[in-house]
Design a protein around this nucleic acid. Structure first.
Lengths: 141, 141
DNA sequence: GGACAATAATTGTCGACGTCAATAGTTGTT
DNA sequence: AACAACTATTGACGTCGACAATTATTGTCC
């Protein structure tokens, strides 16, 4: 029996942790964390999303979404709007400030991932990305 | 600008979290967690390791190693032996019970990873493993 | 139409985790 | 002999992810 590094699942766990650390390091100066950033970037794909939807798509607990949107609202990067057809729901949407922040930080974000994938050449990175996306589609929805 | 799922680093982060969850689920009945399991499996690769060495190889803080070895000692899966040439150090080694536990749980462990990698065929799993190992060598030592 | 289940957001709690500072005991150096 | 470096340990702190409970609102069913 060999060490755990022979196990793909464990490698994913370890490298995933490291990747989160790199993301958080690049976000540090902005006062955001990876989860805020993920939420912001998800908002770019939609006009506005219910918190419920954010929870499902990002894989965070609904209770976690509350605090994240609170923080983003305080920074002026996102806002809650009342839903026209359901007074329970609130629609979360990017603000202009949020869009500007994403534009400015885009390069730094790419660099975080690029650091991690440094040992791989371009073709290998593509391969890795494709394989991971297949897993993500099945496992994370 | 697209969502974060287009970013390989973020995918690694998300899938890594999921992998850790699957491992912990399979370990639940044994009372261990992924970190204990990783330590146990590392011990199979060596006659005995200083806690300092475990910290470096597994990427856990030295203070975390203390608690993990405590737990494993209580369960009888590992033991601390005095180091002959340095009274500061303790050598951590697998016990016979520890070896038996690893034998018994080996299949379940493989299944946890196999579940996660289900969307991939054998060749793709090999490819993924190779790429991850390249990253791990550079990033994790 | 009225009772009741289901849903959206929120609050609070809990254990696990990663990081860091501080300490005691031991060794190496000069 | 004095002092720096190292090993294991303890303790503290903030973050993170999972869960239970609550409030307000909507949908369903008889």
């Amino acid at each position: 029996m060999r060490g755990l590094h022979s196990d793909t699942g464990y490698l994913l766990y370890r490298i995933g942790l490291r990747s989160g650390q790199l993301f958080n390091a690049f976000l540090q100066e902005s006062g955001l964390r990876l989860r805020h950033y993920a939420l912001l970037r998800y908002l770019t794909t939609t006009e506005g999303a219910l918190q419920r939807e954010l929870s499902a798509r990002l894989g965070y607990d609904p209770s976690a979404i509350v605090g994240l949107v609170d923080d983003l609202e305080k920074l002026g990067f996102a806002e809650r709007r009342p839903s026209p057809d359901d007074r329970r729901s609130r629609i979360v949407a990017l603000t202009e400030n949020g869009r500007a922040f994403l534009r400015d930080s885009h390069e730094a974000g790419r660099r975080a991932t690029s650091d991690l994938l440094q040992p791989l050449d371009t073709a290998e990175r593509d391969t890795l990305h494709t394989l991971l996306q297949r897993i993500a589609e099945t496992e994370l929805g």
